[in-house]
Design a protein around this nucleic acid. Sequence first.
DNA 1: GCGACTTTGTTCAGGCGTTCACAAGCGGTT
DNA 2: AACCGCTTGTGAACGCCTGAACAAAGTCGC
Lengths: 229, 229
Amino acid sequence: MPQSRPRIIPEATVARLAVYLRVLAGLADGGRSHVSSGELASAAGVNPAGLRKDLSYLGPCGVRGVGYSVSGLRDRLTDALGGERSRPCVLIGIGRLGSALADYAGFASRGFEFVGLLDTDPATVGHRVGGLQVRPVQELEAVVAETHATIGVITTPAEVAQSVCDRLVSVGVRSILNFAPVALTVPAGVDVRKVDLSVELQVLAFLDQQRDGTPPLLAPLRPAQGVAR
Amino acid sequence: MPQSRPRIIPEATVARLAVYLRVLAGLADGGRSHVSSGELASAAGVNPAGLRKDLSYLGPCGVRGVGYSVSGLRDRLTDALGGERSRPCVLIGIGRLGSALADYAGFASRGFEFVGLLDTDPATVGHRVGGLQVRPVQELEAVVAETHATIGVITTPAEVAQSVCDRLVSVGVRSILNFAPVALTVPAGVDVRKVDLSVELQVLAFLDQQRDGTPPLLAPLRPAQGVAR
DNA sequence: GCGACTTTGTTCAGGCGTTCACAAGCGGTT
DNA sequence: AACCGCTTGTGAACGCCTGAACAAAGTCGC
Ligand SMILES: NC(=O)c1ccc[n+]([C@@H]2O[C@H](COP(=O)([O-])OP(=O)(O)OC[C@H]3O[C@@H](n4cnc5c(N)ncnc54)[C@H](O)[C@@H]3O)[C@@H](O)[C@H]2O)c1
Ligand SMILES: NC(=O)c1ccc[n+]([C@@H]2O[C@H](COP(=O)([O-])OP(=O)(O)OC[C@H]3O[C@@H](n4cnc5c(N)ncnc54)[C@H](O)[C@@H]3O)[C@@H](O)[C@H]2O)c1
């Protein structure tokens, strides 16, 4: 038996694999033992053929004529996405958004654990949020060193996001999730993903206007599948 | 002078236009009158040529040899993205995440205004969040009707997201932003955008593992530009 | 044991998006 | 008035991703 092929997985596929993994976790809880690509694709909101293509990057995962083993596929996906080991994360900026994230149970269940919460505000430092005590941002480097955090999440105001990012990078954090509405500049070898909620709303507004304003002009779009992307 | 061309704008471009608009707002506050594509692209974290191509969908916007007028381009972008009119939004599920969104000032400044906050929890209903009183979710249809909300934001638990979505669609909301980790099914003509934070973290974890595990194998990737995507 | 049905895995073509490179156009200067 | 440098706008090539059709393969029923 040949070992897992070291093929390159497109980033768009990786994002979908994470969605499949969550759906599979739900199916496993429901006691299901097998799923077809059609059912899984429907639950994930994607095309069945695309789903099979995504899974094919991991090598053959299913049984023809039967489908995929829920637990088997779940394990394979978990492995492909980085294993089951807990990923320590630090969160900087414990305001409204940061508090919501720190308190969210959905991350821990997927292996992401906040091991450090940092803020400048003296009114916030010392408080317990999500079972962890908020520490002063001056200790950021020390916290990363002692916890071996590999992921940094930035929920500070935009003005200070770049400086926070620089400090994270300087102590070895190479994966950053940024909620502040600025484009962060980082050296090569560091990955930044940005979540920009204002942009999401603005795109919705644009699509809305386009729909109302010029119905015949936007014609050559989606072939009317009843499932959201 | 020919009026604005009714060309089709790719969705990826629309999202970037929203980013440019925000950067321009900052430049205008700073008193700048002109910008070059290079500077704007750098601030937005994109390629200069791509930026010019994005803007070209709106027709000629700049002056060769000089650059773009900050205020002129800002107005043009504002117009293209749906005008300056206020967009009323309803928010369902005023928990930790929902409260953070309702309280956030960055949306109102871009024309998005929450006009209805809804929840089931009796302990939450009646409270004031972000200057608005939380109302029982039973009144959802009434709130949409009286406020003419066009955008619905879902921050409820995943189990009820689909039913909330159905109710929004049934009263005419055709733009939905979903934070719950489920794929929503909607009829054609309704746009759904999904924000999935667990997936973002999972992708970061994957990239991290890929970097450490197989340095020579992921070689054919990004040409080492020091700016995050 | 054999056949037919079901579902996967892969191949192919099409579209979309991104990137590079160059010509066109404008302002400033001599 | 003509030249020069700078910046935009666009055309074309490239690569990536998506969607569909087809063949391989395994299971269930008889
Ligand atoms: N809340 C939202 O719904 C929302 C939506 C979209 C974007 N954002 C963005 O997310 C970020 C946070 O938003 P928020 O609403 O939570 O703001 P917030 O003001 O409630 O929280 C920001 C926190 O960062 C802390 N902080 C400030 N400077 C710091 C520093 N140098 N180091 C560490 N911490 C520091 C502040 O003390 C505060 O607690 C902002 O950039 C905002 O634009 C928020
Ligand atoms: N908080 C986070 O950081 C985070 C991160 C990723 C995803 N999410 C997702 O966002 C959603 C909300 O997360 P949260 O942390 O705010 O959860 P939460 O439990 O704090 O808030 C959920 C709110 O929805 C309300 N609700 C429940 N059923 C409802 C219904 N039928 N109609 C209207 N309201 C209803 C609840 O009363 C509660 O106030 C969840 O789907 C969660 O998976 C949250």
